[in-house]
Amino acid sequence: MRPTGSDPFEVLGLEPRFDLDAEELRRALLEASRRWHPDQWVLASAAEQHAAERRMSEVNEAFARLADPIERAAALLERFGHPLRPDRRPDPDLLAEVFELREEADEAAHEGGERLRRALDRIAAALADAERALADAFARWAAAGHPDADVPDVLRALDRVQYLRRTLAALQETRENPAA
């Protein structure tokens, strides 16, 4: 995980929540850019230029983090006092499930063709489900006032999205470069 700079929600002036609308996020980026982009400060003093550049960097970094559901989840957890620990253990059931999926995916990759396509579709569908579940977990957590007790639920949902995403990416790569 990245060491976090400033809180990305704060940098972009957004309310900290998981179900951010892409359009809303884009608007926030444009607004912040109009204010902080170095091109708006070319005629200003060197110190101001430097400060603007730094602010704009933060804005772009914040946008990149919030645009990605996993990073957005990490930012939210950190904001409410639960920064992701690099040494956390995922749920054993999840690992078992992923292991099975991976085996199946490897076979499908080996066989290719229709079977590979079906495997891709299935994992993509599972990922979409997992992403919805993650959004729900965050919604419940927020509705309850971000209690510590709900954090394991959120983490489990987050790990699931992360693992499924990796499996899908690996499989897609196999399809694009079958030789590799």
Binding site: M1, R2, P3, G5, L29, P38, E53, M56, S57, E58, N60, E61, F63, A64, P86
Partner: peptide, 11 residues
């Protein structure tokens, strides 16, 4: 394709 200027970190 990250917008610039920008910053990023990793441990």
């Amino acid at each position: 394709n990250s917008p610039i200027p920008t910053s990023a970190g990793e441990t």
